Computed example of a mutant assay.
Amino acid sequence: MRFPAICAVLAGMLLASTAGAESVIELNPGLGPADGAKPVDVTRYEPRRDGKYKIGFSNVFTGNSWVVQLLEEAKWRAAGLPEIESYIVTDANFDPAKQVADVEDMLAQGVDAIIINPTSPVAVVPVLEKAYDAGVVVVIVAADAQTEKATVRILADQVKFGRDGGEFLAKAMGGKGKVIALRGIAGISVDTDRWAGAAEALKAHPEIEVVGEVYAQWAYDQGRKACESLALAHPQIDGVWSSGGAMTQACIEVFNELGRPLVPMTGEANNGFFGAWKENQAAGFDSIAPQNPTWMVAEGVAAAVGVLNGQEIYTQYKVIAEPYTAKDLDTLYRSDLNDSYWVGSILPDEKLKELYGN
C-alpha cells in the first residue's frame, strides 16, 4: 500500500453520522490495530453535554521540516472536526521539564484530551498518569512513554525502520566495510529504537564496523556538519546509516563536495532526499527510504475525538508501511514542491503548494 494512493481519497476525512450530530471518525487506512490492541473503554470518559471538546497537543520541538509538516497536518485535521471547540498547541523545545509544565497547564485549562509526542519516555510519565486518572483522554503519538496509563498509542515500528536500513546497507556493502551513523536526538525513543534495529542488522555481519556516530537532530544543517566531521575524520567510509530526516540529503551533498565516491546510504521519505537520490542515480548511488508518516499526530487528534464521541477506537495502532526503494522514485518525487515536503501528506494539494510550492 502506498500513501500517495491513500491520500488521493483523503483518507481519514470526516464522514457524516446518520445517528446524530456527532461525527464518525475514520482513521487513516495506513493505520491498523497493533497486536493485542483492544477497544478503548469509552465509559471512562464523560462527553460534554454540548458535544464540544478542548484538545491539547504537546509537541516535542519544532526543529525540522518533518515536525513543521506534522503541525500543519494536525491543525488541518483539527479544523475539520466540528466537535473541537479549542485546539491548544505547545512546544517543549526538547525540554522534558517544560513539557511536563505544558501538560500541567493544559490540565488547568480543562482539556478533554491530550495528544503528546514525548520528549522523554520517562520524565513525562507522572503527569500523563495524572491526566489519565483524572479522566482526560491521553494519546501518545510518534514516540513512546513508559506507562500503561494511556488511552491510545499511535506508533510506527521504529525498530523496523532501523533494521530495514541496516539490512539494506549490509547487502549493498557486500557484508563488509566501515559505516558511519547519523543519529537523531539523544534520549528520544524514536532514535533509540531505530538505532537498536540498525545495530541488530549490522551485528549479523562481523566484517562491518561502525567507526563513528553523531547526533544531528534529523535536521539538514546539523546533518551537514555531522557528515562533514565524520567524513574528514574517516578516510574510509563504505556506508552511511541515517536515522532519517533531512540528514541523508545533506550527507550526499557533503560527499559530492568533498569529492568522495558516493557510498550506499539510508534515508527517509522526504522530497529533498528523493531529489538528491534521483540526481545521483547515474553515478551508481542507491538507497532505501523507510516511512515515518507526518500524519500520525493528526490521527491522534482524530482518535481522541472518536473516544470522546464514544466510538470504537483501539488502544494501540501501528503504521502499516514498507520502505520505498528506487522503483518508487519517479512516482513519489515532486519537482513542483521544494525539499521540505514529506511524502504521503494528508494535506490537500492546494495547501501543499501553498506551503512547499517552488
Rank of each mutant, 00 (worst) to 15 (best):
L70D: 14
K38S: 13
A16R: 11
R77C: 09
K38I: 10
E85L: 09
S65M: 08
D105W: 01
A79R: 01
S65L: 07
A78S: 12
E104R: 13
A123T: 07
A97K: 15
L15N: 08
P47H: 03
Y53F: 13
Y87E: 00
L71C: 10
A108V: 02
E22I: 03
A97H: 10
L31M: 04
V60K: 12
D112N: 15
A34G: 13
D102A: 11
L27S: 09
E83V: 06
Y53R: 12
E22T: 11
N59Q: 15
I114G: 00
A101L: 13
Y45M: 07
L70K: 12
E46T: 15
S58T: 08
Q109H: 10
G51Y: 12
G36N: 04
E46A: 15
R77H: 03
A101C: 09
E73Q: 10
D112I: 06
I84P: 10
L15S: 11
M13C: 12
G32P: 01
T119C: 14
N59G: 13
V24N: 15
V111Q: 03
F61D: 08
E85D: 14
R77S: 07
G20D: 13
P29T: 08
D41W: 09
S86E: 15
D95I: 01
A16I: 07
A113S: 03
R49M: 08
S58C: 07
I25P: 09
